[in-house]
């Protein structure tokens, strides 16, 4: 069970939300121009990140808006949520091509990693 901060409604329980998978995958403008492999990559292939991950959620039982979230998939901590069309507030490894991508586990800033035994 998560508590998720809808950018419009504030924090609600996970049961009010639907999950939409990886974020920032734009539908190709001209699908007919793509090869079978390129199209299959758009339709079927997704990043499987351990660490900071940009994903889509929809507040189905609330305002019915889609939005994006940055979640640490290793700890289930939500680092940020932001409205569709905005850039992620932190650099997200899945959006950096190939071998330049930083380690998703390292991409979470200290203050966002949270907690700390007092």
């Amino acid at each position: 069970m998560f508590r998720i901060r809808c950018p419009y409604c504030g924090e609600r329980d996970q049961i009010e939300f639907g999950y939409g998978g990886e974020a920032h995958i734009a539908r190709p403008a001209d699908p007919d121009a793509l090869s079978d492999a390129q199209w299959a990559d758009y339709v079927f292939m997704r990043t499987n990140t351990k660490g900071l991950f940009a994903e889509r959620w929809v507040h189905s039982a609330g305002c019915r808006r889609w939005f994006n979230a940055l979640r640490d998939t290793a700890t289930d901590r939500f680092v940020a949520t932001y409205v569709i069309g905005e850039a992620p507030p932190l650099p997200v490894p899945q959006l950096v091509p190939g071998d330049q991508a930083p380690d998703p586990a390292e991409a979470i800033p200290e203050e966002a990693a949270g907690g700390g035994q007092r």
């Binding site: 700890t75 901590r77 949270g114 907690g115 700390g116 035994q117 007092r118």
Partner: peptide
């Protein structure tokens, strides 16, 4: 809660180490 544990030799026991959420033991 996701917090890590540490073995304390003096107490001969595992004790809370780092918290991952807003929690204090």
């Amino acid at each position: 809660s996701g917090g890590s544990l540490r073995y304390d030799e003096t107490l001969a026991a595992f004790v809370p180490d780092e918290a991952r959420q807003e929690v204090v033991a």
